[in-house]
Amino acid sequence: MSPISEDDWPLFHTLQTDPEVISLCFDEPTLLEIQSKFRSKLEPWTPDSSHWYCLVVSELETGIKVGITGYCIQNGTAEVGFMFLPSFHGRGYGTESLRALVEYSRKHFCLKSFSAVVTEGNLGSEKVLIKSGFTLHSVIPDAYGIGGQMYADHIYMMENIVT
């Protein structure tokens, strides 16, 4: 994993517009919205930043960029997120990268509390979170609209990590 850079625009744009990727995340944003999100992820990051820390996940053997992961810290809790190209779904990259992100953040930034919000029906993301040690904390009915349909938010937590 490496911090996102200007060179990662094609990957980021694809992840924000691919119907298979975003179908259970959000409605397709405009190009201006995508550009704004991308620029915010390029800003220097510290644990006190209000914007997302974004890392690009690449295959070790080939260097092919397969997705992104990262988090935003609010009130001492890091809300994690991840998106992967559909051709790399189901290969364990989400779980491996999320575990590494949590471990690195625990060691280097002393983070102990992590959360994730998953849209109802996004079973692949829920499996990644569970395999990575997160547990379902709460369900908020009709919390988020995608394509004119309301979905529940599933809130996952990982707290009090000890080695």
Score class of each variant (00 low, 15 high):
2 S>A: 09
4 I>M: 04
6 E>P: 01
7 D>P: 01
11 L>W: 01
14 T>S: 08
14 T>V: 07
18 D>K: 06
22 I>W: 03
27 D>C: 08
27 D>M: 04
27 D>R: 08
28 E>P: 07
28 E>L: 03
28 E>W: 06
31 L>Q: 14
32 L>G: 01
35 Q>A: 13
36 S>G: 09
38 F>I: 04
38 F>N: 06
38 F>K: 06
39 R>K: 13
39 R>C: 04
44 P>Q: 05
45 W>C: 01
49 S>A: 14
50 S>R: 10
60 L>E: 12
61 E>M: 11
63 G>K: 01
63 G>R: 01
63 G>V: 01
64 I>C: 06
65 K>L: 02
66 V>G: 02
70 G>Y: 00
71 Y>K: 05
71 Y>V: 02
75 N>V: 06
76 G>V: 10
80 V>W: 00
81 G>W: 12
81 G>P: 06
86 P>K: 07
90 G>K: 07
90 G>W: 10
92 G>E: 12
92 G>I: 11
95 T>N: 05
97 S>R: 01
99 R>F: 05
102 V>H: 04
104 Y>D: 12
106 R>K: 13
109 F>Q: 13
111 L>C: 06
116 A>N: 06
116 A>P: 02
117 V>D: 03
120 E>Q: 15
120 E>H: 05
121 G>F: 03
122 N>S: 09
128 V>Q: 01
132 S>G: 11
133 G>M: 07
137 H>E: 13
138 S>M: 09
140 I>G: 03
142 D>P: 11
144 Y>I: 12
145 G>C: 15
146 I>Q: 05
146 I>N: 04
149 Q>C: 12
149 Q>T: 15
150 M>C: 14
153 D>E: 13
157 M>E: 14
158 M>I: 02
159 E>F: 11
160 N>G: 13
161 I>C: 10
